[in-house]
Design a protein around this nucleic acid. Structure first.
Length: 949
DNA sequence: GTTGTGACGTA
DNA sequence: CGTACGTCACAACC
């Protein structure tokens, strides 16, 4: 049950050994020198980068001992063997070399030991320190971008090897080395000797890479064996090997690290955590590092010496590799060999009464609360329309079975049967994602019993767990290593090409066992919480069913007319270019119109326009509303108004161009459709959101932008698009919840709603309401649910605050119960700590009791809005489930493809228009029963724009 | 290389 | 100084 991790065998602490040169190089090339130099011209990018990167690693690994190794100028014994050795490194830029002493100075001030040994390299110092650490029973980490360090790896020594992004350090354990190179760490130098090392200017055997080297090593046991049998190796590569044997032998001598130098220090000397604040301060001042960054860095280096025992139980077990005090029961994991084993495994587990009994006892409470007893974990990338599947694991009664892709037919059938039989008791983390993943293998997952991702969202809707591990940390206080997200739909990987082979791998099976155990633990924890809060029905009746509908929508995608998009892009692009030319002409310089900073310079300094509003960071805003005001104000100044006009036009057309471009880029070449991802656990109010791309913010307010909607068309086999949207749902919810007779009557009357309300507010007959009066009342109505202020209303309507105040007073005099209702929302939230929608969806507002007025008032507005926006979201989700079911039960081919908060877009099959319009409108209108009707307006057309009504 | 900011699209 | 989102491009980091 316990893992065989080295950290488990009593260690005395953690030693971090850093390859100083490697880190300095990395820092230097990661940060542009131009941006990091003092007034005097001293480059500081490597110093700064070194400090931040090292502090990152310290924060992540929490070592209690630390040493940094450096090379010394002048040759080493290696140069005598191999004159060109590290010739490339000597060519380090001057600007980096001058920073090395500064880095050492900084380390000294920070209280960090650094070591160099004349005649030897930093690598040898590292080898020696690591050996010392391991011998003294320390968990030893070596931070180095030099692969020579891999030879040090064993049960006690792990190399932290930076990847493409420095942040994702790979923990190179023996397993990870074997996984990647197919040789043991001890054999790694043999492999490197054969392959050579370009970074160190060491030639290998021409034509021989990692693959062949590993093959030979495994065949002959190592380099000695290879040399012995060199004559037996056939082919070109064998010949090349024989021609270069001397070089290889030399390489091997050179790449062997010395591990027993006399450094004159002992491990006990390598503690840290007592920086010399004055020295650090002085140095950072001369380097012109800001005060804020200074304290940020100091913090990491202060923590080196930890108190023997932390009084707080929660933070005590932060150390990543230490097993947590809350033990996670890992399953006994079997890797599935063939399809027959699936059936056997199921039989064995179900037939074993002892195991069954154990499991039932352990899970009794949770099972009753609805957590289920089976657990499923599919791993891969669940991107709609292009997902990939790595493996599937099922778990029951403390045993797990891991099934790797590709599946053969019998395996598929066995798995399908298993899912079919047990879905009703299953827990997963992300039903929708699992539908995408399993869909790759042609499998369907019927609705599971429990979803830990959705449950976590219901319990704490404004907490965002991007990974399963983060959810574990939050809900279980279980801190396991957070490897890269595998189950979440990340925007992280840019293409799958090289993501695969650079993966951090500590025993992948162990990782899988941990992950599925987390899902189980989350289910057992969250199910009773939902039950206790009477939210289980939200999961079972809304979120889980809607996941399935969303999967269908994402999988279907939205067909776009690519030619039309291309044409539009060209048009917008040309318009933007023209506007830019004009702006440049009038400005007299080629300002970057997309740079607020440069615009501020031109507008408020060069042209001397009067700046008014500031941004939150204190600079003058150049947003559209300010530009518009200036445009009016400087109408007589030809140059200024011309520039402002051109700038506004550029802003608009360039934005449209950008939107069209992202749509083009997001179109799947296989089907010409855009498969967005609807995020079901992101918006704190219960709404959905749409990403990659966002199809919920396609322009709709002005004609030029709305044109983009005409590129959304029915796909092959479909005849038209249907758009159905709720009118004024949020206001109707307010009418219902408040019980305000006047507002209810306004909706029941079926009249022009805003005109009707205006006539009540102003006490004027309906036919005498002016368009101003109507629009003012309309803005007021809509603003209600946002907690608008007098000031905000005045600003939006461009009326005086006193006038706005008057409007507000009149409005609330007319609809008194609405006013009381809104106040009660905030008061209830303050009393209970949370708000609740019509269906029991909660959102917590700790900031309501904040002493900070700005924060508190913001929380009040959000608390006022959440139950209203959230109830509308609940209603739409119910409508989607109903509409989807109605369409399926009617046996039509039409399908929902998009949701934009209060609108559904349906792709309609030939001949189904009338029937489908009726079904969807009905599903929406009768999603819930309110004291006011839920009006739905519908439209149908050859594209999304034409479907508007 | 990472992070924050400003601007702006939607309901 | 009105809620809820996502995306882009720039600039800073010193």
């Amino acid at each position: 049950m316990t893992e065989a991790s080295p950290a488990n065998t009593e260690t005395r602490g953690t030693l971090l050994v850093v390859d100083g040169h490697s880190l300095a190089f990395r820092a230097f090339f990661a940060l542009p020198v131009e941006n990091f130099s003092t007034d005097a011209g001293q480059a500081t990018n490597a110093v700064w980068g070194f400090a931040t990167m090292l502090s990152q690693v310290i924060d992540a690994e929490q070592p209690d001992h630390l040493a940094v190794a450096f090379d010394v100028k002048g040759g080493t014994f290696r140069n005598q063997l191999l004159p060109q050795y590290k010739g490339t490194r000597e060519a380090a830029p001057e600007e980096l070399l001058t920073q090395l002493p500064l880095i050492q100075q900084m380390l000294a001030a920070l209280g960090v030991t650094y070591i160099e040994k004349p005649g030897y390299e930093g690598d040898d110092v590292i080898g020696t320190l690591a050996t010392m650490g391991a011998d003294a029973n320390y968990r030893t980490l070596v931070l180095s971008g030099d692969r020579d360090a891999f030879q040090l790896i064993d049960d006690r020594i792990t190399v932290l090897y930076p990847g493409h992004h420095f942040k994702d350090l790979k923990h190179m354990t023996p397993e990870a080395v074997e996984e990647k190179y197919h040789v043991t760490p001890a054999q790694y130098p043999d492999l490197a000797a054969l392959r050579g090392e370009t970074a160190d200017n060491i030639p290998g055997v021409p034509g021989v890479g990692d693959g062949f080297a590993a093959k030979w090593i495994n065949q002959y046991g190592g380099l000695d064996g290879i040399i012995e049998h060199a004559d037996e190796i056939k082919g070109k590569k064998g010949e090349a090997l024989r021609d270069n044997l001397e070089q290889v032998k030399l390489n091997r001598k050179v790449n062997a690290l010395v591990r027993n130098l006399d450094l004159g220090v002992s491990i006990d000397d390598l503690t840290f955590g007592k920086p010399d604040a004055n020295a650090v301060d002085a140095l950072f001042k001369t380097l012109e590092f800001g005060v804020r960054s200074r304290s940020k860095i100091l913090k990491s280096f202060n923590g080196g010496v930890k108190p023997a025992l932390s009084p707080q139980g929660t933070d005590a077990a932060r150390n990543a590799d230490q097993p947590d005090e809350q033990a996670l029961p890992l399953p006994e994991l079997t890797v599935c060999a063939d399809a027959a084993q699936i059936g056997q495994w199921v039989d064995a587990n179900l037939a074993d009464p002892w195991q069954q009994g154990m499991a039932n006892n352990a899970n009794d409470v949770a099972a009753q609360a609805g957590a289920g007893t089976w657990t499923l974990l599919a791993q891969g990338d669940p991107k709609p329309g292009r997902s990939t599947l790595d493996n599937v694991t099922v778990m029951a009664a403390g045993r797990a079975l891991l099934i790797k892709t590709p599946f053969d037919e019998p395996t598929k059938h066995a798995l399908a049967a298993l899912l079919d039989e047990h879905h009703g008791t299953l827990a997963v983390h992300g039903y929708k994602e699992h539908l995408h993943l399993l869909g790759v293998a042609g499998l369907h997952l019927p609705e599971p019993k429990f979803d830990t991702k959705l449950a976590g969202y219901l319990v704490h809707p404004d907490f965002h767990a991007d990974t399963l591990e983060q959810a574990a940390a939050h809900f279980l206080d279980l801190h396991v290593e957070d490897k890269k997200p595998q189950v979440t739909q990340g925007l992280l990987d840019l293409g799958d090409d090289n993501a695969g082979d650079e993966e951090p791998r500590e025993n992948p099976n162990e990782l899988t066992a941990t992950r599925i155990a987390i899902v189980r633990a989350l289910a057992d924890t969250l199910a009773p919480m939902l039950e206790q809060r009477s939210q289980s029905h939200l999961l079972a009746d809304i979120e889980l069913p809607v996941s399935r509908v969303l999967h269908g929508m994402e999988d279907a995608g939205a067909k776009v007319d690519e030619q039309r998009l291309d044409t539009m892009r060209e048009q917008f692009s040309a318009d933007a270019r023209q506007a830019q030319e004009m702006a440049w002409d009038l400005a007299g310089s080629r300002v970057n119109l997309q740079s607020p900073k440069q615009l501020q310079q031109v507008l408020f300094e060069d042209m001397g326009l009067k700046a008014t509003k500031r941004t939150k960071s204190g600079s003058y805003t150049t947003n559209a509303s300010v530009l518009q005001d200036l445009y009016v104000k400087y109408a007589n100044d030809e140059r200024a108004s011309g520039f402002l006009g051109a700038l506004l036009r550029h802003r608009e057309t360039n934005k449209l161009k950008q939107i069209v471009q992202t749509l083009i880029d997001a179109t799947n070449p296989k089907d010409g459709r855009i498969h967005t991802t609807f995020e079901q656990t992101v918006a704190a109010t219960g709404r959905l959101s749409s990403v990659d791309p966002n199809l919920q913010n396609i322009p709709n307010r002005n004609a030029a932008g709305r044109e983009i909607r005409s590129a959304f068309v029915p796909g092959e086999g479909y005849a038209s698009l249907l758009s159905c949207d709720y009118s004024q749902v949020e206001l109707r919810i307010m009418a219902d919840r408040s019980g305000d007779e006047a507002l209810i009557e306004a909706f029941r009357s079926g009249a022009d709603f805003h005109r009707y309300v205006a006539s009540l507010v102003y006490g004027v007959p309906v036919d005498q309401i002016t368009s101003d009066q109507r629009s003012h009342v309309k803005a007021m109505s809509y603003g209600l649910a946002y907690g608008l202020s007098t000031y905000g209303l005045a600003q939006q309507l461009k009326i005086s605050p006193s006038h706005a105040d008057e409007l507000k007073a009149k409005y609330f005099a007319t609809f008194g119960k609405v006013h009381d209702y809104l106040e009660s929302l905030v008061a209830d939230a303050r009393a209970k700590g949370y708000t609740e929608t019509m269906f029991g969806r909660r959102r917590y507002f700790p900031a309501l009791s904040s002493t900070n007025r700005v924060a508190r008032e913001a929380a009040e507005r959000a608390a006022l809005n959440a139950p209203i926006q959230g109830s509308a979201a609940d209603i739409m989700k119910i409508a989607m489930i109903r509409a989807d079911r109605a369409l399926r039960e009617a046996g039509v081919n039409s399908r929902i493809i998009l949701q934009i908060h209060d609108e559904l877009v349906v792709e309609v099959a030939p001949g189904e228009a009338e029937q489908v319009t009726g079904l969807v409108a009905d599903a929406m209108e009768h999603a819930v029963d309110l004291s006011v009707p839920l009006d739905v307006s519908t439209g149908i057309g050859d594209d999304w724009q034409l479907a508007a009504h």
